[in-house]
């Protein structure tokens, strides 16, 4: 009951901002940020520091010392004189990240996408072929619209550019519509919580 009351108070405090900024909104905003940070810290400490460092060390696994020391270098940023030390773990992380990601990412986002768009198969259903044609038209028209280095004075240029804008608007419209739906879904959950309380 007490928890439900607190939840109701926090919900109403946040939504009171719709009327105007006030002390209840400010309190709740900071409260949520504080609670989230504290929760995150405790979970990371348990699952990171205890599980991945303390327990292996206590079992005699000394290999974890190297990544731990590397991680400690991040604290160098706390002092101007030692700030450069943080660059070593950062470089290590960026290097590993880039090395691991570049190959599979090109295959995922470029090769497979181009392959399934351009490849024609006589066995494909008619709507797949139709979709692919639309995608190719949309791709080239939109790219043409963004080619600002070209002079586009002819009527055909304007037609292609307008087609590009049309497809861009369809894309933005779909994203915007989905965004509205997402925000209303969140509001529905809040209203359900309030209705449930009464």
């Amino acid at each position: 009951m007490l928890i439900n009351l607190i939840v109701l108070f926090l919900i109403l405090s946040i939504y009171s901002f719709l009327y105007k900024d006030n002390v209840f909104f400010k309190f709740t905003e900071r409260f949520v940020v504080g609670i989230s940070a504290a929760y995150g810290f405790i979970k990371l400490f348990q699952r990171g520091f205890i599980d991945k460092l303390y327990i292996p060390l206590s079992h005699g696994n000394l290999a974890v010392i190297f990544p731990a020391l590397l991680g400690l270098l991040f604290f160098g940023t706390l002092n101007k004189k030692t700030a450069f030390l943080a660059k070593f773990p950062l470089a290590f992380l960026l290097g590993i990240g880039a090395g691991l990601e570049i190959g599979p990412r090109i295959e995922t986002d470029i090769v497979k996408q181009i392959y399934t768009t351009i490849i024609y198969s006589p066995h494909s259903p008619w709507f797949t072929i139709f979709n692919n044609i639309i995608i190719i038209i949309a791709l080239f028209a939109t790219m043409y619209y963004f080619l600002f280095v070209l002079r586009k004075n002819r009527p055909i240029d304007r037609i292609i550019s307008k087609t590009g804008i049309f497809f861009l608007m369809v894309g933005f419209g779909a994203s915007f519509g989905y965004t509205i739906m997402a925000r209303i879904s969140l509001l529905i959950e809040v209203i359900k919580t309030v209705i449930h309380f009464f």
Binding site: T108, Y115, T116, T117, S175, Y178, T179, A182
Partner: peptide, 17 residues
């Protein structure tokens, strides 16, 4: 995925990823 992200992932359905 959330509705905001859904349109971003439709190309991956087309490619059967």
């Amino acid at each position: 995925v959330t509705a905001v992200m859904a349109s971003e992932y439709y190309p991956y359905i087309q490619s059967k990823q």
